[in-house]
Amino acid sequence: MVAQLGTAEDNVEAAGMEPVRGRSLWSDARQRFFANKAATGGLVVLVLVVLFALFGQTVAQWSNEEIDWSLLGNIPQAGGPSIANGHYFGVDETGRDLYARVVQGSRISLMVGIVGALISVVVGTLWGAVAGYVGGKTDTVMMRIVDLMMSIPYMFVLILLLVVFERSLVMLFIGIGLISWLDMARIVRGQTLSLKNKEFVEAAIATGVRTPTIIFRHIVPNLLGVVIVYATLLVPSMIIFESFISFLGLGVQEPSTSWGALINMGASNLRNETPWMLGFPLAVFVISLFAFFFVGDGLRDALDPKDR
């Protein structure tokens, strides 16, 4: 018997038995996730990327602000990746260490992706769950607001925002926050509509549980699978979005940087025969996105084994 696994409980001890530990749907999903090699691999890569962003600077021999004056002037010839002079990824067009710059860009890009996903998880889930559960006129009004915001060409609005107000990270977060939750709200509302007719929700209503408690105790936990999957797939799309804005030259501002800004810089220097300026940021970018997508896929298969 698995009784040893359980935690002691005095009331049950009286019956002479220790409680058996149950296997929740979450622990089942965890098992399925780790049985999936691609997803586990993706997760490992992701952890490495995060560690790189957090602690990569400690390995660097140059800071991201220092200019290597000895290389300036002949960057295409001498600025390439080399262990000898401490520039592992080479230097950028102004002679700064590209490795340090990529570490710095990873921080910003990951932050943008995670903040975007967090906003969408919190706002989108609440918005969708309330609209779907309450229904009726509330639902109509809330979802029309979503429709309205979706019909606005957000890229245009964001560019306007960034031009009119000062370009800043905060502005970028506001812009991303405004749009990221819309799709999530729709997905969550759809799921809520099917959940709220389940008998366990009716049982809770019949018991006399209050509406907010029902939403938080019965609706949201059963939505989380879908939400988590969508959020992990949203992180890369937020990163791509930010990169696109930065690629246009409107995103983060010098001396700060992001993957998109670095790729932009590398791409514009392609003619100067400095392929490392594009290659390294792009490689980190692509690897991270792949990892995110693998993890997202793995999570979907693990949390929703039925609709594979």
Partner: peptide
């Protein structure tokens, strides 16, 4: 709502009437 404690209900589909994310102790104690 307070009166609902006097009247309780048992449902047709036994599995669908239990929240799959809660364990038995939580369900019974709700």
């Amino acid at each position: 709502r307070t009166h609902r404690r006097e009247v309780q209900m048992i449902f047709q589909d036994p599995l669908a009437a239990l929240n799959p994310r809660m364990n038995v102790g939580e369900i019974i104690a709700e």
